[in-house]
Simulated scan of single mutants.
Amino acid sequence: MFDTMTLTKVLGAFCGAFLVFLLGKFVAEELYASRVGHHDGEVVQGYLIDTGGDDEPTEVAEGPTFEEVYAEADAGKGERVFNKCKACHQLEQGANSTGPYLYNVVGRDVGTAEGFGYSGALSAVADVWTPEELSGFLEKPASYAPGTSMGFAGLNKVEDRANVIAYLATFGG
């Protein structure tokens, strides 16, 4: 079925196709590279597509502030959001797990859960867990406190953060 001549033809076809591919790449690079020029020390784009837009930055309409959303937060909905937190956090005082316990966390000093070894990154960014500080941390923990050992990706929706903080505020204090 397969003899030496057939294998030679297949190998030659692959080599020929590869050479055509390389030639096409070379031609495309030369075509587009010759359109880009240097003007007074800076590179000028060869193919500029005018979209008709101006260079003024457009203002993005922002939603309500966290304070406005927190004022209308629903602790019942926050309990459902807290299900994401249950894997690492407990609501009983002194019951540390992978993360520190969250009993009385709203208004508590940062890094003061008894018996939990903190990384130290949190105390560098905040003193007290106010609702605003908690919201910033829960949005994206790694960006808020670089070096934190919390591996959670974060809660993107401001409503989810407000609801879970309202739920946590019902425990303790």
Rank of each mutant, 00 (worst) to 15 (best):
L19Q: 14
E30Q: 06
H39M: 12
V20T: 09
F66V: 01
L22R: 15
T51A: 04
G53S: 05
A71P: 02
A17R: 10
V27N: 03
T58Q: 04
H38C: 04
G63S: 14
A17Y: 11
D55C: 07
E68M: 12
P64A: 07
D54I: 06
E30Y: 10
H39N: 12
P64R: 02
S34I: 03
V20A: 07
Y47E: 09
I49E: 08
E62L: 07
Y70S: 00
L23E: 10
G46F: 01
P57F: 13
L22A: 15
H38W: 10
F14S: 02
G46P: 00
C15G: 05
T65K: 03
S34L: 02
Q45M: 07
R35M: 13
P57I: 09
E42Y: 06
I49Q: 03
V69N: 01
G46W: 00
A71Y: 09
P57L: 10
H38E: 09
Y47Q: 05
P64I: 01
C15W: 13
T65Q: 11
F26S: 15
A61D: 15
V20K: 07
H38Q: 08
D50P: 01
A28F: 15
L48I: 05
F21W: 14
V60Q: 12
H38T: 12
G53K: 04
L31F: 13
E59A: 06
V44G: 04
Y70D: 00
Y70E: 00
E68A: 11
V60P: 01
E67L: 04
G46L: 00
V27Q: 07
P64D: 05
G41R: 09
G41P: 00
E56F: 05
G37D: 02
L19G: 13
P64T: 04
E29H: 02
G46R: 00
S34Y: 11
L23A: 15
R35W: 14
P64S: 03
I49G: 03
V27Y: 13
V36F: 08
L23D: 10
E30M: 05
A17Q: 11
Y47T: 05
I49A: 03
Y32Q: 06
V60E: 14
G52E: 08
I49F: 08
L23H: 08
Y32W: 14
A33F: 11
L48S: 05
P64C: 00
V60I: 15
G16S: 13
A61C: 14
L48A: 01
E59G: 03
D55R: 12
H39F: 15
E68H: 07
G53N: 06
E59R: 09
